[in-house]
Amino acid sequence: MEYIQVLELFAGLGGLHIAVNNQKDANIQVVKSFEINVNAVKTYQENFGHDVVSNRNILSLSTEELFRQNVNAIFMSPPCQPFTRLGKKLDVNDDRCNAFHHVLKLLPRSPNIQYLLIENVYGFESSKMRDTMLEILQSCGFYTIEFLLSPTDFGVPNSRLRYYLLARKNKKFTFCKHDHTSIVKEFPYCTCRVKSLNDQASICSNCQREVNTNISSLVQQNAGNAAQNSLVNPGKLHSYLDKETDIEQYAVPDKILLRYGNILDLRTFQDSSSCCFTKGYTHLVEGSGSVLVCSRSVTIEEAYKVYNEFKDTDSEAALKSLRKLKIRYFTPKEVERIMCFPDNYTWPKDISDKTKYKLLGNSVNVHVVTLLVALLLHS
C-alpha cells in the first residue's frame, strides 16, 4: 500500500494535520509543516510536538528540500486576503500571493509530489491566481477537482463557505459525474450519522446520496459533535457550547449593544446555524461572527421593540432592554468545537483570547477537510 508523507504549508493551528490524523486506516502522516506566525507555531507545538513545525517563510523552500523531506503530498491553506470580499481583491498583484505562487512554481521540478489539497476563501474560484494554479497543475499531469463547501452542508451549525481543490497525479477522480472543469457544490457521498455501517444499501435513504464505507466510517468515528448531525438533521448550537460560561466575561460591551444592536447576528441555543467566525471576531461587529442570546425569559422581539423605540431618545432605556437578553460572544473553546477541533486541543497559557479568535478565524473546519482528505485518498 502506498505511504503518503504530507508537507503542511501555511499550517496555522494544524487543522489539516488533525484531518490527516483522523484517517485511521490510511497510511498517511504529516512529516513537516511550515508556519510564519509565532503564536500559531507555539500552539502547533503544544499539540503536535516541536519537531514537526518550523517557523519560517515558505519563500525559502526549494525543490531540493522538498526532495530531502521525502514528501509526496502537499496540503495547504494559503493567505486568503488577496481574494476576500472585505479586502482590496488585488489577486496576483498582492504580495501575500507570493509564497503560494512560489510553491506552485516548484511543482514542475518536483515529480515526487503526487497529491495536493488546497483550501481558500470563497472568491478564490474567480481569481487569476486560481487560473495560474490550474494551468501549472495541468502541465504537471495532475487531475483536479474543485469544491465550494460549507460546514452547514455536513450538519455543522456554521456557515463557512470555502474553496477546496483536490489534485493527484496520474489518478483520475471517478466519484463525480461532471466534466472536472466546473466547481462541485455538493459533497458526493452520504455523510449522515444515521447511516448504519451495516446497512448494505448503496444509496442513503436519508440524504439520497451514494454511500462510501470509508466516508461513513470517518463520520462515525472522528467528527466529534459533527458526527451527531446530518444535512437533513443539522446540529443545534447548544451541543457545541460550554456547560458553564461566565456570561459577564464574554458579554458584548454596552457601547457595542447601543450603537450596533441592529446589526449583531443573534443566535440562540436552539439555532442550527451561525455566521462565519473571522479573525476580527469580538473587535469587529458586522460579518465577523455570531453572538449568543443567553436569556430564556425575554424574547428577542420584546427586547428589540423597546430598543428601537428608545435608542435615539433614551439610550439608557434602550440599553437596559438589550441587557436583558444577556448577549455574549462565543468562547474560544466554543468556536473551536464549531470548527470541529477535538476537545483535547490545547493552547499555550500565554495565548490571549483575542489571539485565539484571530488564529481560529484563519483556520479550517476540521470535519470538512477530514472528509476531503478521505476523498483524495480513497476515491
Rank of each mutant, 00 (worst) to 15 (best):
L7T: 01
G12V: 04
L13C: 01
L16F: 14
V20D: 02
N21C: 05
N21D: 11
D25V: 13
V30M: 05
I36K: 04
V38A: 14
Q45Y: 04
N47C: 05
F48R: 05
H50G: 11
H50N: 15
V52A: 13
V52F: 13
V53A: 01
S54F: 09
S60M: 15
S60T: 15
E65L: 12
L66T: 04
L66C: 08
L66H: 02
N72E: 05
I74P: 03
I74G: 00
P79T: 04
C80D: 11
C80I: 13
Q81T: 14
F83V: 13
L90Q: 12
V92A: 13
C97E: 05
H102Q: 12
V103W: 00
L104G: 08
K105S: 15
R109A: 10
I113G: 03
L117D: 09
I118V: 09
V121N: 07
Y122K: 15
R130N: 03
L134R: 06
L134K: 06
L137Q: 06
Q138L: 06
T144D: 07
V156D: 11
L161W: 09
L161G: 03
L165M: 02
L165F: 08
A167H: 00
K169T: 02
K171F: 06
F175Q: 06
T181H: 11
S182Q: 12
I183G: 06
V184M: 14
E186P: 11
T191L: 08
T191N: 08
T191G: 07
C192N: 04
V194F: 14
D199Q: 10
V211E: 03
T213A: 07
G224Q: 01
Q228I: 09
K236L: 12
H238C: 11
S239A: 14
I247W: 15
Q249D: 07
Y250H: 12
A251Y: 12
D254A: 07
I256Q: 12
Y260E: 07
G261L: 02
L266K: 14
L266A: 13
R267G: 04
S272P: 03
F277D: 00
F277C: 06
T278M: 14
H283K: 11
V285W: 05
E286T: 11
G289F: 07
G289L: 07
L292I: 05
V293K: 02
S295W: 13
S297Y: 13
V298G: 05
T299V: 12
Y304R: 03
V306L: 02
D314E: 10
E316C: 14
A317H: 15
A318D: 03
K324Q: 13
K324C: 10
F330R: 02
P332M: 05
P332H: 03
R337Q: 01
I338E: 10
M339T: 01
P342T: 12
N344I: 08
T346K: 15
W347A: 08
W347G: 02
T355M: 15
L359S: 12
L360K: 06
N365K: 03
L371E: 00
L375D: 03
